[in-house]
Write a protein that binds this DNA or RNA. Sequence first.
DNA 1: CTTAGCACTCCTTCCTTCTGAGTGCCAATA
DNA 2: TATTGGCACTCAGAAGGAAGGAGTGCTAAG
Lengths: 359, 359
Amino acid sequence: MELTDRQKQILRAIVDIYVSTAEPVGSKAIAALPDVKCSSATIRNEMAELTQMGLLEQPHTSAGRVPSPAGYRLYIDQLMTDYRLSLDETRSLNEALELKSQEFDKMMSQLGKMVSKMTDLPAYTVATRRSGAVAKHFELLMTGPGSIILVLMLSGDVVKNKLIKLPVSVTEPELKLLSAVLNASLTDLTAQEITGELLEKISRSAGAAGPLVPLVMDFTLECLRQQHGDVHLTGQMRLLGQPEYKDAAGKAQEVFETLDEELISNLPAVLPKDGPVQFLVGPENVAKELKDTSVVMMRFDIGEGMQGTIGVVGPTRMDYAKITAKLGYFAENLGRMFQKGGAAAQPPALPDGAEQIEN
Amino acid sequence: MELTDRQKQILRAIVDIYVSTAEPVGSKAIAALPDVKCSSATIRNEMAELTQMGLLEQPHTSAGRVPSPAGYRLYIDQLMTDYRLSLDETRSLNEALELKSQEFDKMMSQLGKMVSKMTDLPAYTVATRRSGAVAKHFELLMTGPGSIILVLMLSGDVVKNKLIKLPVSVTEPELKLLSAVLNASLTDLTAQEITGELLEKISRSAGAAGPLVPLVMDFTLECLRQQHGDVHLTGQMRLLGQPEYKDAAGKAQEVFETLDEELISNLPAVLPKDGPVQFLVGPENVAKELKDTSVVMMRFDIGEGMQGTIGVVGPTRMDYAKITAKLGYFAENLGRMFQKGGAAAQPPALPDGAEQIEN
DNA sequence: CTTAGCACTCCTTCCTTCTGAGTGCCAATA
DNA sequence: TATTGGCACTCAGAAGGAAGGAGTGCTAAG
């Protein structure tokens, strides 16, 4: 069942208005729009039909219309007009993009904070490996009589470290030997390629530090197998600024808790695969508590077989076009920064005038 | 002006009841308590006096009484009876204490999550140095044609890393040389002891890698100078479970934002110094937006010149005794775990019966 | 097919009333 | 002198209408 042009125009208008007012949209409001040529009665007829099709909903009989999840979906897939970032917006996005270069994990978390601030909604970031990770370098450092720190460098510029308590006493030279053996035999191997035999061989060549090998390898394999970095979720409280949570702290709390638990653990499974952008609208969402909540996810490149995802979480009624535009701007420039010269590189030059972003 | 025993008893009862009900406490409720011997009229007289002294407040003329901040303060300092952890509580605290040993920073953040869950309130953790930090080891690793990773180990088992983009091209052996020079000349020095002259000397001995020295040292000095680790704040949303935020999402959001901004940056300045426990009651708090919010902070030892702080944030009306007991239990056992054998060590044995915790 | 008109629905807001918990004070009591 | 029972008074919050108004669906005319 195809929509007529007028129906599309009306649906689009309803979504646009509802997104900015959070109030059900009446037929008069639509008829009053400058480029609508017909009367409110006609609009009413069309609205009744759109409701029948399941694209609109009515909170109660004598209220205006609100887009249904299906309506949002259709809007996103077909009707959404690209949002043009204003010069001001571009400028503040650029400002935000001036990441203080730090440890990788902190950069990701800082990025999330920036996005959350720019969209005034909760945001999260995850780093994902595109290919299997390999170890690049092992370093074992004595920190005290009974403990060492293992510093592990992985592909993708990821550094992990762990404090290990020693089951046996080991001397500094023995530790050096073990480091050397590990670096010689395990660098550039994926988790699959590290076999039990290999480990046994290493244990034997490591001499007195042999008993350490399982401890070191447990952590290493755990790191290598990790597909996703931590999910950094921030700005949850911004959701409270949305009118839907005006006086329903209970509802908000439920959403928060779900975000904290479900989303963080399930989200990596629904990272965008096909396009750079993906939308989860209301009930399409991972958890049923989030049925009135939507997620916009945007992929970006961080080179070295790694890929990042920025996501923004908001009420189903959110400005998909604007958020997509902002995320797109971030993604584009982040990819460039990560590839070219790291976060310390120049932020992108200010374009002359507002820039068109494709979604 | 000293309080009579009966006044103390009444104040204590009012705080105890109000803390658990969040409703103003009337004279009848007090008179009905088993160990109160006088009538409600007497209680009313005493309550009027306590109100005059500024220890109680009245939301409106015909309502019961509520403790004022001064009342809470007096309660905390003199009246609070130690809360006895139940066997159940001790058991779940012990369960929570089974930290998965990980990187230091993650442990701290995980600890915050545990505490937040156990108290059902927002919590934060910070690690603080007691003495100046020194560098223990430098490691420079080539990650690609134009970039290296600097891994820096500090005293206190803290590991920091940073991706550095190279201004000049450097070979692997040159990098090794620089590592060696850094390790030879800078280990065990505090930030103060690293002078310009010293750096210049290093630059010269580093040969081709000389131009890298400022980049490396900027980061190193930044790390050495850092007094506090990151403040890990979690569980903000639990505040929404408290009745005072039942239908005031706006107020909650304000508190959240303040927590995020003010608290995190100002908090290290008010870390407990004198006792292991410190209370910030309502207006004593760091920011005026938190005037209805209290903080309980507990110090614990993590050895190696480091000290940790766990804090719990809640409405002024919170169960100080219970929270103190729980934090105390954490602090005691954490200190033991960190000192004896790291987080991988055994959690404390379950005491026979509930255990008395001193605050 | 579109539109003006109209009756109808029902949410929202505002006002009023009512109730009851709790106080303050006074006079009686021990 | 300290305590208690009694009583009038206060005031927030709940409950109950009543009015207002935005918006709909339907019908009949253009």
